[in-house]
Write a protein that binds this DNA or RNA. Structure first.
Length: 612
DNA sequence: CCCTTTAAGCTTTTT
DNA sequence: GCTTAAAGGG
């Protein structure tokens, strides 16, 4: 039994020192909104708060803390950090999940609390575009031919998610919802994530007993990346926890509000403060960036409509540390030269506003001449997060290098989670599976030594997939049930891995590590870089063409610029290129986004360098 | 078959 | 607002 600490005796774990407002946030019992800028240590704050609540029993055993994030990896990271800070006995009372997982768990557990007409079939599938399209056609409210395909999807989404339940107003949703809830014409029931959120909210709204049980389970709630919360998500949170004794800690940064175009609520900070009587506090440390970079970030506060706050930097820096450059190039060759020249440090990232492929062709080419690999991460990042790809990679690594403890951990962990077998509870089945594992590893090792073409690689990958068994994989990872999602992931994995194999030949460890991106400079969009940090960041294409939507969404684009800038620890460079020969209309301009140039030229901390 | 016109996509996650 | 792909016209 882990020891309970008296609140006044509690200290942050692992020697972490919390700034004043963070310390106050950890100890406050009321609802609070924490505005935490880049590098403020959001994850650490939440992990320490979890530690405080659990170790002092302020979160009264057996009550739990619920942490809600947007992305799986964010939820996972937070869980890991809490486990690390306060151990697994307390950590098990910390539930970290995504909004969708939270809503779905409510729906799946309390499906029978819904009235018959709103209750989806138990075997519903999720987000199947074909079924949704058929449902709308069948409901026949309008002629889909009058809409363009892209607009049609938006329309479906709008109609489905603006439907209020119980059905009261006559709208299109009323006719489509029943089809999707129950299935039709041999189609299974199909829900969208938004429908799941709406149904979960309705369950809580109409069942006081379930709500009470939820409130009893979770005495404390953490909301991460709060600035990205959509109206539906906020409504769910509100129905669950408004006017309750559960205490909510919402953490976010209005300066990094770059998801409005995807439906994030613009007023969620104010709404939360007034509707949950939440106080507001602000963190003033930036543990990430060097002083010159923080100075430039502060100079953006005016245009970001933020009060000027004296952000403090880490004392590991000298006040002159940090370097910011704006490179103005005539040609992409000159731009590529300066970037390839500068890329010596290891921890580097190249960012673009959008479509990185269009902006970085020449740079990749030049870096290759220097013997440095660089690649656009979009597809790789998706793939390497895919559970089946993680299993494949780890098993292939084990086949080559039998004594790799981390890989064994992944594989054995997956045997446990996929088949629910372990050496303690079900030793016979465990031994049998271990034997099969050794067989496939031998077979794999043998095959990997003599792969000659992409077909043979495909065959090998299929054998490994069959070792786990497709039905078992599908029941462990429900996302793989639908359509050809699973097959497509495998297909792309094989194709991209083959590309690496062609370059490294028989050095399989190298092939796999290259695939994981261990030795290449990542190139990505600003949106993908959110939450990440690098020693040096190059933002390529500070141009009107890249910020084509600036007129319509200046605030969001300013935030995007701010997000890019705040990824860098020490070196930040921007490039502008007069002629981009790889684009159809090569001539670039910067009059529309002149304010960014103005900022850099007048900041006193950035250098403008003309390349000729 | 080639040239012109039209319109979607661009920045995203989630079981 | 630019890029790309597909549809449309001669």
């Amino acid at each position: 039994m882990a020891k309970i600490i008296r609140p006044e005796k509690w200290l942050p774990s692992d020697g972490i020192v919390l700034e004043e407002n963070a310390d106050a946030t950890v100890k406050i019992q009321n609802n609070i909104l924490v505005v935490a800028g880049p590098g403020a240590g959001k994850t650490e704050l939440l992990a320490q708060k979890a530690g405080y609540l659990l170790q002092t029993n302020s979160c009264n055993d057996p009550q739990k803390i619920l942490a809600i994030s947007f992305k799986k990896d964010a939820a996972e990271n937070l869980k890991q950090r809490v486990q690390k800070r306060c151990g697994s006995e307390f950590g098990n009372r910390f539930s970290s999940m995504t909004y969708d997982a939270f809503a779905k768990s409510l729906l799946d557990r309390f499906r029978y609390a819904l009235p018959e007409e709103l209750r989806p079939n138990a075997d519903y599938v999720i987000e199947d575009e074909t079924i949704i399209d058929c449902a709308f056609r069948k409901a026949g409210y309008f002629n889909p031919k009058n809409y363009y395909p892209g607009k049609l999807r938006d329309l479906y989404d709008f109609k489905i998610s603006s439907t209020e339940i119980p059905f009261c107003k006559a709208g299109l949703g009323e006719d489509v919802w029943p089809l999707l809830l129950k299935g039709f014409d041999n189609h299974p029931a199909c829900l969208t994530f938004k429908m799941i959120c709406i149904l979960a909210e309705y369950i809580i709204r109409t069942n006081t007993k379930i709500r009470r049980a939820l409130l009893y389970t979770y005495s404390h709630v953490f909301l991460d990346e709060f600035q990205d919360t959509t109206d539906l998500q906020y409504k769910l949170v509100k129905t669950c926890f408004e006017n309750s004794s559960s205490s909510i800690t919402a953490v976010g940064d209005n300066k990094q509000r770059i998801m409005i175009w995807a439906g994030a609520s613009e007023t969620v900070f104010e709404d939360f403060q007034s509707e949950f009587s939440a106080s507001k506090t602000q963190l003033i440390m930036n543990h990430r960036s060097a002083p010159r970079l923080v100075e430039l970030q502060k100079q953006m506060y005016v245009s970001l409509q933020e009060n000027r706050v004296e952000i403090q930097t880490s004392d590991k820096w000298d006040s002159k540390d940090g370097e910011i450059n704006l490179f103005i190039a005539d040609t992409e060759a000159a731009e590529a030269d300066i970037i390839a020249e500068g890329i010596k440090a290891k921890d580097i990232c190249i960012l673009c506003k959008q479509t990185p492929d269009r902006y970085t062709g020449k740079i990749i080419e030049k870096l290759n001449e220097f013997g440095i690999k660089a690649r656009v991460e979009t597809e790789y990042q998706d793939l390497i997060k895919e559970p089946i790809v993680i299993l494949l990679i780890n098993l292939m690594r084990l086949a080559i290098k039998r004594k790799s403890p981390t890989e064994w951990e992944v594989i054995n962990g997956s045997l446990l989670s996929i088949y629910k077998i372990s050496d303690i509870d079900t030793p016979d089945e465990y031994d049998k599976k271990q034997e099969e594992l050794i067989n496939i590893l031998n077979k794999c090792n043998d095959a990997m030594g003599k792969i000659g073409n992409v077909e043979e690689l495909r065959g090998l990958v299929n054998d490994i997939v069959l070792f786990w068994g497709i039905p078992d994989l599908k029941s462990a990872y429900p996302a793989y049930i639908q359509g050809d999602y699973f097959d497509n992931k495998i297909k792309r994995f094989v194709e991209l891995l083959w590309e690496e194999y062609e370059q490294c030949q028989d050095d399989w460890i190298n092939v796999l590590e290259n695939f994981m991106g261990l030795y290449s400079v990542p190139i990505m969009t600003i949106h993908k870089s959110k939450g990440l940090e690098y020693e040096a960041v190059y933002f390529v294409g500070l141009e009107d063409g890249a910020f084509w939507n600036f007129k319509n969404q200046p605030m969001e684009d300013r935030c995007a610029f701010f997000v890019a800038l705040s990824r860098a620890k020490q070196f930040m460079s921007f490039t502008y290129c007069e002629v981009r020969e790889s684009l159809r209309y090569p001539r670039q301009s910067y009059s529309e986004i002149n304010e960014f140039f103005e900022l850099l030229t007048t900041s006193g901390v950035a250098e403008v360098i003309r390349l000729s």
